[in-house]
């Protein structure tokens, strides 16, 4: 099954790095969608089906916290897992994003394995099926 992924970060270079990391991780990705803040991400979600959202917190216009609250209001957060990718490591902040429905939190700078592991967890993909796909497609991670 191919997953559609939405990456939300105001840094285009960070969006590229996350995209490359997911591609290299061996996930079957249908389409990547991008937004540079929460508002743009909500516009994507209005039009497209997304299986997982990776979002930063510190962004202009609509930050990650306001975005999570909007997802909660629209009940999207209960059906689409959200992974926070942020510079924040303070416990209170992490508790806050989990309280708003985020399913995982990764601190920047991250290692590729952290993204892979978080996506496997939230998408319910096990190591065996990832390995099987890597063998079938010749992925090297």
């Amino acid at each position: 099954m191919a997953f559609n992924v939405l990456i939300v970060d105001d840094s285009s270079s960070m969006r590229n790095i996350i995209k490359k990391t997911i591609e290299m991780s061996g996930f079957d990705v249908g389409q990547f969608f991008e937004g540079s803040n929460g508002r743009e991400a909500l516009a994507v979600l209005d039009k497209e089906w997304v299986d997982v959202i990776l979002t930063d917190i510190h962004m202009p216009e609509m930050d990650g916290i306001a975005f999570l609250k909007a997802l909660q209001d629209q009940a999207i957060v209960s059906t689409t897992p959200v992974v926070i990718v942020t510079t924040e490591g303070r416990e209170e902040r992490i508790e806050e994003v989990f309280g708003l429905g985020a399913k995982a939190c990764i601190q920047k700078p991250f290692r590729p394995e952290e993204i892979r592991k978080a996506l496997m967890n939230v998408l319910g993909v096990d190591e065996q099926s990832m390995e099987k796909r890597e063998v079938e497609e010749g992925c090297d991670f």
Binding site: S13, T87, G89
Partner: peptide, 19 residues
Amino acid sequence: DLIDVFKEAANVIAGNLVT
């Protein structure tokens, strides 16, 4: 892109410093 990379470096360094 150079400006974006340096801006993100500042973001990551400041965020980790705050932590």
